[in-house]
Design a protein around this nucleic acid. Structure first.
Lengths: 343, 343
DNA sequence: AATTACAATTAAATCGTTTTAGACCAAATT
DNA sequence: AATTTGGTCTAAAACGATTTAATTGTAATT
C-alpha cells in the first residue's frame, strides 16, 4: 500500500511547521492566531496532496478515539439489529464510529469483547449484557469508564441503564388473554434464565397468573436453550399435542420464540387463535402479515437507543461524573388476531 | 478515567527494559532468546499489574489494526444483518474487529464512511456499494488497499467481488410462475435503479419475459424509492385494484418489497395465490409462517460472507497482489404456497 | 592470553499527531 | 533608545508500542 501523506509532508512542501498545519487542520487557526493567508495556503496544499489525518495517531495522542462499542447477544436478531441501526445513526450524527460485537450469550466471550473494546480505547460502551456477575461493571465504574446497560440490567440500579418494564408488559398480555377468556396459559422462555429481561418477564408471568388465580402448569412453561429454539419448540409442541395436553394460550418471551412457535403450530395444524392463542414479547414486522397476525408486546426501540446514547454521551462529556441514570421505559400491547377467542 | 498500566510500568517495576517486556508480551521471547525465568517473571508482573496493550499505539506503530470495515446500505435489513453476523464471526475467529457502516444508499455517505474507515486504518473493507462511479474503487486498487465487493458489483469484474447470479434467480422465478400458469406478471423494484443487484434482477425479468413471449405491462412494473416502500406499495396496489388492472403475479425484487407487498395485499383483501401470486427475491424466515408461505429466491448468505472474508484475508496477507477474484454464486428457488395456482 | 561466539538484554529511533512553552519581529509605549 | 506588546509561527516533548542495532558478560576456541 502506498504511504499516505502526513502532516509533515504538508508542512515541508509549504515550508512551515508541522504545528501550524496541525492547528489549521483542526480549525484552531484563528484561536492560535494563524494569519488567514497562511491558513488558506495550508488548506490548498492539504487538498492538493489529499492529506487525510491518521485517526490512529490522533486517537493515540489525544485519547479521543471518537469510537464507541455496542455489545449485544446477536446482531442478526431483529431487535438488536434495529437497536444497532439507531445507535449507529446517532453516532454518525455525533461524529462517532460504532464497533458492534455479538456475544452469543456467552459470559466469557462478552468479557473478551469488552476487553478488546477497552484496548481499542473506545470512549464508551453500550451493552446488553449476558453477565451473571456485575464485577466487570463495577470495575468500569471504578475506572470511571462510560457505559450504559440497555435492555438487560442488574436490578440494583447501581449502573446507568435503559430498560423496559418487562413485568408490566407480560402482565398486560396475560390480562388481555384473561379478558379474552383464556385460562390455560403457557409460557415459552429461554435459558440461560439469569438474563434479566427473561427473568423479569417470567416474574411478570407468575405474578399475574397468581393475581388472576390461574393455574401454573409445568408442562406448559418451558425453558429452551437460546440456540436450540428452532429444534426444541416443534418437539415440545408435538409432544403436548399428542398428549392432548395443549394450553389455550402461549406467551413467547422473545421474538425468536414467537416465530418458532408460530411456525411450529402451523406445521402441526394447530390453528391460531381457534385452537391456541399466541402472544410475542417483542414485536416484529412479520407479525403484521402472518396469518393470523400476532399480538405482541412492542418495545420502544428507538427510544431505548436514543436514551442510551444520550446517557453515554453525557458520561463521555463528563457532565455526570459519578451520577447514574437508570431508566425504565413503558411498553405497548399491540393487539392483533392471534388472541381473539371469537375468531 | 484512571491511567492504564503501560509496558513501561511493567518494565520499571521489574527492572528490565521495555523492549524485553514487549518481546515477551508478543510471544517472541523465545525467538529473541529471553530466558524462560525472565519470561515467567514478566508474565507474572503483567498479570499482577493487569497490563493491557494499547491497541491504538500498537496499530499506530505497526500499521496492523486488526480491524476491517463492512459497509452496507442498512444493517437493520435482515439480509445485511445476517451477512454482518457471519462476517463478525469470521473476523472474531481470526482476531479481527469489524466496523459496520450503513449508507442509506447514499453515494456521498458511503464515500465519507469509506474515508473514515481508511483514516482509522482498517486493514480492508467489505462493501455492498451504492456508488454510481467506480472511481473510489479504482483509487483503492491503485493504493493496493484490500477490499471486496459483496452483493453488488460493477459488472466489469475489475474488482474482487462476491455476488450472486441475479439474472438466473429471476429467470428461475419467472419460469416457475409460467409453469404454474401465470401469464400476467408484474415486478416491484426499488430506486435508485443503478444498484447492480436490482439492475440485474430487472434484466433477468425482461429477458425471461421476452423469452416466454409474455407481455411487459408498465403499470405492473414499478420502481419505488427505497425508503418509501412501505407507503408507496399500498398506494400502487390499491390503485391497480380499483382500476381492475391487477397482474396475476408479482415478483418483488428484495425482501422489504416482498414484505410490504404481502402486507398490502392482505390489507386490500387480495388473496394469495388465488388472486395473485407473489415471489420474493431474498428469502426470510417469516416467509415460512406467513399465510400463505411465500416462494422466494434464496441467497447463499453464509457462502457470500465466507468467500468475501476469505478473499479479503488473502489480499491482506498479500497472497494475491494484483490478482482479482470475482465470484458469482448460484441461488435457489424455494417454492412455497404463494405461487401455486392450484390452491 | 587473546580472540571469537553466543546468549541475554537494552538504547534509541520511529510511527503521526497534539500541545506547551517560547522565539522572532515589527509596532507601540515609555 | 530601551522596553513592552501583540501577532505569527516553531521547536520539542509526549502518547505507548515495536524493532534494529548495539552492548554486556560469559564460555569456548585458538
Amino acid at each position: 500500500m502506498n504511504k499516505k501523506t502526513t502532516l509533515s509532508d504538508v508542512a515541508q512542501s509549504l515550508g512551515v511547521s508541522i504545528t501550524l498545519v496541525s492547528m489549521v487542520v483542526n480549525n484552531k487557526g484563528n484561536k492560535y492566531g494563524i494569519s488567514p493567508e497562511t491558513q488558506q495556503k495550508v488548506w490548498d496544499k492539504i487538498h492538493e496532496l489529499n492529506y487525510k489525518p491518521n485517526l490512529l495517531a490522533k486517537g493515540f495522542r489525544t485519547g479521543k478515539t471518537s469510537a464507541i462499542g455496542l455489545i449485544v447477544s446477536d446482531i442478526s436478531n431483529r431487535f438488536y439489529a434495529k437497536i444497532a441501526r439507531h445507535i449507529e445513526d446517532l453516532a454518525w450524527q455525533n461524529g462517532y464510529t460504532v464497533i458492534i460485537c455479538s456475544t452469543d450469550e456467552s459470559v466469557d466471550k462478552e468479557l473478551r469483547q469488552m476487553g478488546i473494546l477497552l484496548e481499542r480505547k473506545v470512549e464508551g460502551i453500550i451493552v446488553s449484557s449476558s453477565q451473571t456477575s456485575t464485577k466487570i461493571f463495577e470495575d468500569l465504574v471504578a475506572m470511571e469508564y462510560p457505559f450504559v446497560l440497555i435492555d438487560r440490567n442488574f436490578g440494583n440500579m447501581k449502573f446507568s441503564s435503559v430498560s423496559i418494564n418487562n413485568e408490566q408488559g407480560v402482565e398486560m398480555a396475560i390480562e388481555h388473554l384473561y379478558q379474552q377468556g383464556y385460562r390455560k396459559i403457557g409460557m415459552f422462555s429461554i435459558s440461560p434464565g439469569y438474563i434479566s429481561t427473561i427473568k423479569n418477564r417470567k416474574i411478570g408471568f407468575y405474578n399475574s397468573m397468581q393475581k388472576l388465580s390461574l393455574p401454573i402448569v409445568d408442562d406448559w412453561c418451558i425453558e429452551i436453550p437460546f440456540n436450540q429454539v428452532e429444534q426444541d419448540i416443534p418437539q415440545h409442541l408435538s409432544l403436548l399435542k399428542s398428549n392432548k395436553n395443549l394450553p389455550e394460550a402461549i406467551i413467547a418471551m422473545n421474538n425468536n420464540l414467537a416465530s418458532a412457535t408460530l411456525l411450529s403450530l402451523k406445521n402441526l395444524g394447530i390453528r391460531i387463535p381457534r385452537d391456541m392463542a399466541l402472544i410475542s414479547f417483542d414485536d416484529d414486522q412479520s407479525f403484521n402479515f402472518s396469518s393470523p397476525t400476532i399480538t405482541a408486546i412492542e418495545q420502544p426501540i428507538e427510544q431505548i437507543s436514543h436514551h442510551a446514547f444520550d446517557i453515554l454521551m453525557k458520561q463521555i462529556n463528563n457532565k455526570t461524573k459519578g451520577i447514574y441514570q437508570a431508566e425504565i421505559l413503558p411498553v405497548k400491547l399491540k393487539i392483533r388476531e392471534s388472541t381473539s377467542k371469537g375468531c
